Computed example of a mutant assay.
Amino acid sequence: MAPRAAPAGGPLSLALVAGEPSGDMLAARLLSGLRPHLPDARFHGIGGPQMIAQGFESHWPMDQLTVRGLLPVLMRYRELKGIQSALRNRLLAERPAAFIGADYPGFNLGLEMQLKAAGIPTVHYIGPQIWAWRGGRIKKIIKAVSHMLVVFPFEEAIYRQAGVPVSYVGHPLAELIPLTPDEGAARRQLGQPEDGNVVTIMPGSRMSEIKYNTVAFVKAAQLLKLRDRTLRFVAPMAGERQKAYFLQLVAQAGLQDVEIQLLDGQSHAAIAAADAVMVASGTASLEVALFKKPMVIAYKMMELEWQILRHFGYQPWIGLPNILAREFLVPELLQHAASPQALTEAMWKQLSDAPHRLRLAQRFTDMHHSLLRNSAAESAAAVLKVIESTK
């Protein structure tokens, strides 16, 4: 059977969906690897600015899908389901050569199941964290996914054992972040003194993360400043909405006198410039590890959501650096444990324990090497094989 084409004999069509910035980055790397092999192909679906920069056509703004947390998703279920159904109908009519879901499994796996059942090959990039929680999801993955692309080495055996075709393609962040970051250049870029002590604060990019993490993080900065007056603080903001909300929460808590340099984006420069980072759990913690920086991982959420989710984890770790290391390399402070006082104590150790900092740098360097592949080329090769298999 020949690869499916767009109606009326148009160019080869590939559909993709990314629901948040991390998926946008993953899909953009994949598109950069596919374009030399498929120069005339039409890439379309739902995506963000990085995908659009690769010539992608987004039928809905990606921001309409960006929502995190069990309760927020439930509150917007009808809206998200409506978008999913409309896109499904469009793709069933067009029949693209393949559908690629970039992370965002709650939305993409359901869509992939329907498309695969209709004979459209489906690729999922990246593998849902069934090794961390919701292992029963593998049954849905088997029905939904023609080929899985994974970004951590240990995941390959898990999916292969379950009978899901899989390729380990490396983690794109391991390519984007240099093995030896230039701290001095980052500090010059941010206007920070090269011989100063810099702490980077990263409460999260989603509005819900900012809501629950900001006050504890900024209070911890205030307490750290009492211990060391030379400390300087920077905080990258994902956008103007996030920045305005951050400032609102700081003002409401009476913390506006805490001096923090707010950055428009520039998260990698902020991490590279830091002596240590206070970071919300998620992909950002892996970025900090790849920059070889000491960190404290913290996360707070709505109390009801916490009471539901805290029983579902299979592992003692939630931070990606600790999961990859299979030990608590860096502290994790969750919900009530993420108090300003506890954050301060944990951060102080990251800043002041020189032998610990050296050990972390070596472990994070080894981790970086394990994740380093040409992810654009390898993920594109896997997708091309899926398309070829339909001929």
Rank of each mutant, 00 (worst) to 15 (best):
residue 99 F to M: 05
residue 105 P to E: 05
residue 290 L to G: 12
residue 301 M to Q: 06
residue 248 Q to W: 05
residue 53 A to L: 02
residue 301 M to V: 13
residue 7 P to G: 04
residue 53 A to C: 04
residue 139 K to H: 15
residue 314 Y to E: 14
residue 315 Q to L: 15
residue 355 P to Q: 13
residue 294 P to L: 13
residue 263 L to F: 09
residue 354 A to D: 13
residue 132 A to H: 11
residue 43 F to T: 03
residue 303 E to N: 14
residue 135 G to V: 00
residue 234 V to A: 13
residue 157 A to Q: 15
residue 391 K to M: 13
residue 261 Q to F: 00
residue 50 Q to S: 10
residue 216 A to M: 11
residue 145 V to G: 09
residue 75 M to C: 10
residue 384 L to Y: 11
residue 159 Y to M: 10
residue 180 T to P: 02
residue 190 L to K: 05
residue 8 A to T: 04
residue 381 A to T: 03
residue 156 E to N: 10
residue 343 L to D: 07
residue 175 E to W: 06
residue 180 T to C: 14
residue 275 D to M: 04
residue 112 E to A: 15
residue 293 K to M: 10
residue 79 E to K: 14
residue 240 E to H: 13
residue 63 D to H: 12
residue 244 A to D: 06
residue 15 A to M: 01
residue 130 I to E: 06
residue 52 I to G: 03
residue 166 V to K: 13
residue 191 G to I: 03
residue 324 L to V: 02
residue 111 L to H: 06
residue 132 A to S: 12
residue 137 R to C: 11
residue 125 Y to S: 05
residue 137 R to Q: 13
residue 145 V to I: 11
residue 246 F to N: 11
residue 141 I to Q: 03
residue 388 E to C: 06
residue 117 A to V: 04
residue 75 M to D: 14
residue 361 A to H: 14
residue 214 T to Y: 03
residue 27 A to D: 03
residue 338 A to C: 10
residue 152 F to V: 03
residue 78 R to L: 10
residue 266 Q to F: 08
residue 385 K to H: 12
residue 251 A to E: 15
residue 169 V to H: 10
residue 292 K to P: 01
residue 47 G to R: 00
residue 17 V to D: 08
residue 238 A to T: 13
residue 334 L to K: 01
residue 327 E to I: 10
residue 27 A to Q: 05
residue 127 G to F: 00
residue 152 F to S: 00
residue 134 R to A: 10
residue 263 L to K: 05
residue 292 K to C: 11
residue 295 M to Y: 05
residue 25 M to N: 02
residue 124 H to W: 07
residue 146 S to M: 06
residue 138 I to A: 04
residue 247 L to R: 12
residue 268 H to F: 12
residue 300 K to S: 08
residue 374 N to V: 00
residue 356 H to I: 13
residue 49 P to C: 00
residue 197 N to V: 14
residue 130 I to R: 01
residue 49 P to M: 01
residue 315 Q to E: 10
residue 202 M to D: 05
residue 88 R to G: 08
residue 330 V to S: 10
residue 129 Q to L: 05
residue 349 K to Q: 15
